[in-house]
Amino acid sequence: MLLYVSSTPVLMDEETLVDILETSRRNNARRDITGMLLYVEGNFMQVIEGPKNAILTLKETIANDPRHSGLIEILSTPVGERIFGNWSMGFRRAGWTDLDVNGMTRFLERPEPVADNDPSALRILKEFACSMR
């Protein structure tokens, strides 16, 4: 599993986000990748699950995508069972007020790498996933 944050050079409109989501879902299904993508006012937080080589290839693709800048890896760890296994890519567009998840408000403003046992960023995505069902 890979959990990262990145920023966009310009704010993305709905059409651009839908295009990213549709392309991601199509590609991820072929690569056995699942996950969750959160977009908040020019910032992405994403968890990617799947085979290690597929994750590493996707990470490189994202890092070289001009729509992303400043990719910061928050968590990279093997997992026994997928958290987002039913989704080729869950998605949520949110505002800062939506991020008040267990005291994690504004996490995306100043993300910092965390230890493997600190589930803060992953908890945010899990909360959003649960609220979407």
Rank of each mutant, 00 (worst) to 15 (best):
L2R: 04
L3F: 03
L3Y: 03
S7N: 13
T8L: 06
P9I: 08
V10H: 11
L11T: 04
M12T: 00
D13E: 12
D13S: 03
E14W: 00
E15K: 15
T16C: 12
V18C: 06
I20C: 08
I20M: 10
L21C: 04
L21D: 01
E22D: 13
T23G: 03
T23M: 09
S24I: 04
N27C: 05
N27P: 01
N28S: 03
A29H: 03
A29I: 00
R30C: 01
T34L: 04
T34P: 00
G35Q: 02
M36F: 15
M36E: 06
L38F: 04
Y39T: 04
E41N: 14
F44R: 11
F44T: 08
Q46F: 02
Q46R: 02
V47R: 06
V47C: 15
V47A: 15
I48A: 11
G50W: 02
G50D: 02
K52G: 02
K52Y: 08
A54D: 06
I55C: 15
I55K: 03
L56R: 10
L56E: 13
L56Y: 05
T57W: 06
D65Q: 02
P66I: 13
P66G: 11
R67V: 07
H68N: 05
H68L: 02
G70M: 10
I72P: 01
I74P: 01
L75P: 01
L75A: 06
S76C: 11
E81L: 07
N86L: 03
M89I: 07
R93L: 07
A94W: 08
A94T: 14
G95V: 09
W96Q: 14
T97F: 11
T97H: 10
D98T: 06
L99D: 09
N102H: 13
T105F: 10
R106Y: 12
L108A: 11
E112W: 08
A115C: 09
A115Q: 11
D116S: 10
D118M: 07
R123S: 15
I124C: 15
L125Y: 08
K126F: 10
E127T: 15
A129M: 12
A129I: 04
A129R: 15
C130W: 15
R133Y: 09
